[in-house]
């Protein structure tokens, strides 16, 4: 059975969101958490473009995808800067060690 293109893209979206969520649940390194978020957002990006295409409003979906790219980049920038500062202040990137929020 040949998959149609929308179904294939939905599989990719579901796969990316699944991998990202799994990583968010299991990973303990702060930088890897940002990587997991990035992977999830890539799934959302593809979903927005596909939704626009399926609804006959391609440009609306694309303009929303553009906004997601900008927001995603800012999230990565702030997350990484936060990781750098956390490493300087606490000497570790392990999330479990950071749960006390004490120096």
């Amino acid at each position: 059975m040949m998959l149609s293109i929308p179904n294939l893209v939905i599989l990719i979206v579901v796969g990316l969101i699944g991998i990202g969520t799994y990583a968010l649940l299991t990973v303990r390194n702060l930088i890897k958490v940002v990587i997991a978020l990035q992977i999830m957002v890539k799934g959302a990006l593809l979903a927005l473009v596909l939704a626009g295409r399926l609804q006959g409003k391609e440009n609306l979906g694309q303009s929303l995808a553009l906004m997601v790219i900008v927001a995603d980049t800012i999230v990565a920038v702030v997350g990484l800067a936060l990781a750098v500062q956390v490493r300087r202040a606490f000497g570790t990137l392990d999330l479990k060690a950071l749960t006390t929020l004490r120096r």
Partner: peptide, 18 residues
């Protein structure tokens, strides 16, 4: 990412999951 990893250094990321 490369910049941030450079600043923080490589840390063991294969810790047991929560």
């Amino acid at each position: 990412f490369v910049f941030a990893i450079n600043l923080t250094g490589e840390e063991a990321s294969d810790l047991k999951s929560l």
